[in-house]
Computed example of a mutant assay.
Amino acid sequence: MKAALPALAALLLLTACGQAERLSRVGRPPPLSPVTDPTRDPAWRPVSMPMPAPQEAPPLANSLWRPGSRTFLRDQRAAQVGDLITILVSIADEAQLQNRTQRSRTGGEQMGVPNLLGLEASTGRILPNSVSPDRLVNTSSTGNSDGNGTVRRNEQVTLRLAAVITQTLPNGNMVVTGRQEVRVNNELRELTVQGIVRPQDIASDNTIRHDRLAEARISYGGRGALSDIQQPRLGQQLLDILLPF
């Protein structure tokens, strides 16, 4: 019991910290996060991907036209660290799964020693008189299990988000990161997108579809009064984790 007290105290402190943050914004809407450099986020890490073997650039004749350009004077698409690019998120996901498992098991065991070199006559000295040597063990067990699960999901998200190029990989691909916050009344909606894009996939209007992002990380959520109500109480979450039943 004494060994569990420090763990319980630490748990109460963590709970108090979470509650203190919610109490600090009672009567006020959730604050917007300041605009910062994504590369200065402690959770940000440079992306390392497999690279092709380096190739020497072929010699080019004197020309005003640059390879890869879509305009005669300048390519307006994002190409360098710090440039902006618009990501079009259009997700229409629908899935339906149904699974059922049934299991039944019955077992029985019997064990006795009717004759064992005449020693069965001496069992009364060790075991109670009511014990018969030919019926020493008799067990039975029955188990049944029936599980039925159904998953039905229908999601549709359509958004446009401006992202910034945070890194250029050696093979020319670019790492993009975008974040958007919208506050309506006391509810704050957050949208984050991160991934790797090819310059060839960027359209002439400097947009790219989300399905062209490699290692895409798309998150759409929120925090505020409505989100807090939709979450189970802390006590319920704790019981769901600890109770084995």
Rank of each mutant, 00 (worst) to 15 (best):
K2P: 02
A4R: 00
L8T: 02
A9C: 06
L14N: 01
A16M: 04
A16H: 01
C17M: 11
C17Y: 06
Q19L: 13
Q19M: 09
A20N: 03
L23Y: 05
R25Y: 04
R25M: 07
P31K: 04
S33R: 10
S33N: 05
P34L: 06
D37C: 04
T39F: 02
R40F: 05
P42L: 03
A43V: 08
W44G: 01
W44Q: 00
R45M: 08
V47M: 07
M49L: 15
M49K: 13
M49D: 08
M49Q: 13
P50I: 11
P52R: 06
P52W: 05
P52V: 06
A53M: 12
A53V: 11
A57E: 15
P58C: 05
P59Q: 09
L60F: 08
N62V: 14
S63D: 10
W65S: 09
P67V: 08
R74S: 10
Q76K: 10
A78F: 02
G82P: 01
D83G: 03
T86E: 09
L88A: 09
V89I: 15
A92L: 11
E94H: 09
Q96L: 12
L97Y: 15
L97W: 15
N99R: 12
R100W: 11
R100C: 06
Q102M: 12
R103T: 07
S104G: 11
S104R: 14
R105S: 12
G107E: 09
E109F: 12
Q110K: 12
M111L: 15
G112Y: 05
T123A: 09
G124Y: 03
R125E: 11
P128N: 02
S130H: 09
S132N: 10
L136C: 00
V137I: 15
S141L: 07
G143M: 15
S145A: 14
G147H: 14
G147W: 12
G149E: 15
G149C: 06
V151T: 10
R153S: 14
V157P: 02
L159K: 13
L159S: 09
R160L: 12
V164G: 04
V164Y: 04
T166V: 14
T166A: 06
P170Q: 07
P170K: 07
N171G: 07
N173T: 15
V175G: 00
V175L: 04
T177C: 08
R179E: 14
R179Y: 04
R179H: 08
V182A: 10
R183A: 02
N185P: 00
N185T: 15
N186S: 09
E187F: 02
L188H: 01
R189N: 11
I196G: 00
V197Y: 02
V197R: 02
V197E: 04
R198Y: 05
P199Q: 15
Q200P: 00
D201I: 05
I202W: 01
A203R: 13
D205N: 10
T207Q: 10
I208T: 05
H210N: 10
D211A: 07
A214P: 01
A216C: 06
A216L: 07
A216R: 09
R217L: 08
G222H: 04
R223P: 03
G224K: 04
I229G: 04
Q230S: 11
P232H: 00
R233W: 08
G235K: 05
Q236H: 08
L238E: 00
L239P: 00
I241K: 12
F245T: 12
